[in-house]
Amino acid sequence: MDWILDFYNYRVVGQYLPEFARGLGSTAWISLLALGISLSVGTIGAIMRMSANPVLWRIAAGYVQAIRSTPLLIQIYLIYFTFPALPLLDRRLDELEGGIIALGLNAGAYMSEIIRAGIESISRGQVEGAQSVGMTYLQRMRHVVLPQAFARVAPPLLGQTAVLIKDSSLVSFIGVFELFGAGLVVLNERLMPNEGFLTVAVCYLVIYTVMLSVTKFAQRRLGGATG
């Protein structure tokens, strides 16, 4: 049994369980908030991208290109280090806020492409039907187009959410404590990389497995309902 303890000392992992739990909770919160930002940004971006107004769609298209062509790490650095003091907040962003905003803006670009595909898949007749009963543009979007679009692209949105959760490990670069940070604590305090990072890897794998089964579920339920 000694070789197991040499390679992976589970007693040390047991000692650090509170750290791992705290990291897991932090990752969950960061991902959830970033997901909220990314879905809002993605929806607005998708609608702007489909607008006939050249200024609006060019801004949205340029945003997607800029995000897709630069690494998330540089986006985090740019937002955290160079975001000016906000007038309402009266201070600079702290690392948690900067990290969440950067993650949300990054995922938002990818989400907007997915949501746009969803909106484009809604048949023209739906919009015309809604117009004919006198709905305004916003009402049509809110009650007719978006609910169907989101149901249709729920599986890829969930897949992108899984990527977002993995990407959230990068906010540890600007000093945010999350799941990966818990592994770093074990490395720094005990010089035990295996115990730290294998445990973190297993935690991420569990999250991934859950996301995968939720995606499969969504594919079955929602994919079947809207055809």
């Binding site: 993995k166 990407d167 490990s169 990068l170 540890s172 990966f180 592994g183 490395l187 990389p193 295996n194 990072f197 294998l198 973190v200 890897a201 991420y204 794998l205 999250i207 991934y208 497995t209 995968l212």
Partner: peptide
Amino acid sequence: IHALRGTPFLIHLYLVYFMLPA
């Protein structure tokens, strides 16, 4: 494939850099 897809690249990097030499 699932093991690598399900974990962040940062973890792969640290495991290769710290665990394998150890």
